[in-house]
């Protein structure tokens, strides 16, 4: 009966973009990813291998995140997509458009209104809530990869919980530079077991991973791995007693909203190299400015 039953080769009824499935992926692929997600949630921080598919966007441009989003999105979801914290960066626009076209989902730029947020390189400043899922795009899911290039070796290290090489590397940083010389993709320990790459978010965002009410899913398309941090899970940034983990701070405030607590992007505004600082999270910045000025149309 192979090939006849709906779960073997079913195609979406009523896909929006003619000729393609709802949210692009076929049902068999979605089921495979969904089963992987269950295991990822059950073993927090462990990288589940999955049969990553080619997406119509290049590897490295968020195909892992897109496959997870495609597997979880439903008709009632409201999707937000950010890149560098901004809704209006070109790749964020492109991915948001892709799902609006293939799944017909509602989209938003407002963090609190979104049910699914796909992100590259940031966690929103606005605290997330329990009805939200944050989907991270991950380039290199293996936190040990730059210390040990072989997958066979790193898998053994994870199996044994042997993270000595990572601690040695961080300690060498301290000995050489006086600091841990990692400012983004800063490794964390999840639920006291797996060392995990939180994706290339600045370490400023690491504390937001800890005991978050929202489910966090991570997808690496090219490397064909997915992993998860369930809500209310302990996530600890690696550090040493004499060199505790600390996040970036700026002396400046956001030039638009005046925020002193958010992650700031540095802009060079003239040929003399003068600098201004603005929030990387465009929605957060907009919400803070709203009482004072009307919201600008995104994408203009």
């Amino acid at each position: 009966m192979n090939g006849l039953n709906p779960n073997a080769a079913s195609q979406a009824a009523g896909a929006l973009e003619s000729g393609y499935n709802f949210a692009y992926l076929d049902e068999q692929t979605k089921r495979m990813i969904r089963r992987g997600l269950l295991k990822a949630v059950a073993v927090p921080g462990y990288q589940v291998p999955f049969g990553g598919r080619e997406m119509p966007l290049p590897y490295g441009w968020g195909t892992g995140g897109m496959q997870l989003s495609a597997a979880i999105l439903g008709a009632d979801d409201v999707l937000k997509v950010i890149d560098q914290g901004a809704d209006d960066t070109t790749n964020a626009v492109s991915i948001r458009r892709f799902f609006a076209r293939t799944a017909g989902v509602a989209t938003t730029t407002r963090t609190p209104e979104a049910t699914v947020i796909q992100t590259r390189h940031r966690i929103p400043e606005t605290p997330l809530h329990g009805e939200q899922i944050l989907v991270f795009q991950v380039p290199i899911p293996e936190p040990l990869r730059f210390i040990e290039p072989s997958e066979t070796e790193t898998r053994t290290m994870h199996a044994l919980g042997d993270y000595g090489v990572m601690h040695v590397k961080l300690y060498e940083d301290i000995a050489t530079f006086g600091h841990i010389a990692t400012s983004y993709a800063y490794p964390v320990t999840v639920d006291e077991r797996y060392v995990m790459d939180p994706s290339p978010i600045p370490k400023f965002d690491n504390p937001k991973l800890h005991m978050s009410p929202a489910l966090m899913l991570f997808g690496a398309g090219r490397e064909k791995r997915l992993y998860a941090v369930p809500p209310f899970t302990e996530v600890v940034s690696l550090d040493f007693a004499d060199h505790p983990f600390a996040v970036q701070r700026w002396e400046e405030n956001c030039a638009f909203c005046g925020s002193h607590d958010s992650y700031l992007d540095e802009l060079i505004v003239d040929d003399a190299g003068s600098k201004r600082f603005v929030c990387s999270d465009t929605d957060y910045c907009m919400q803070r400015r709203e009482p004072f000025e009307p919201q600008q149309e995104v994408g203009q």
């Binding site: 441009w61 890149d83 290339p200 600045p202 090219r222």
Partner: peptide, 15 residues
Amino acid sequence: GFVSHLKLPHYVDFQ
């Protein structure tokens, strides 16, 4: 894909 993704904005990490 992975080489070309270097064209995407990376200004947050660069910061």
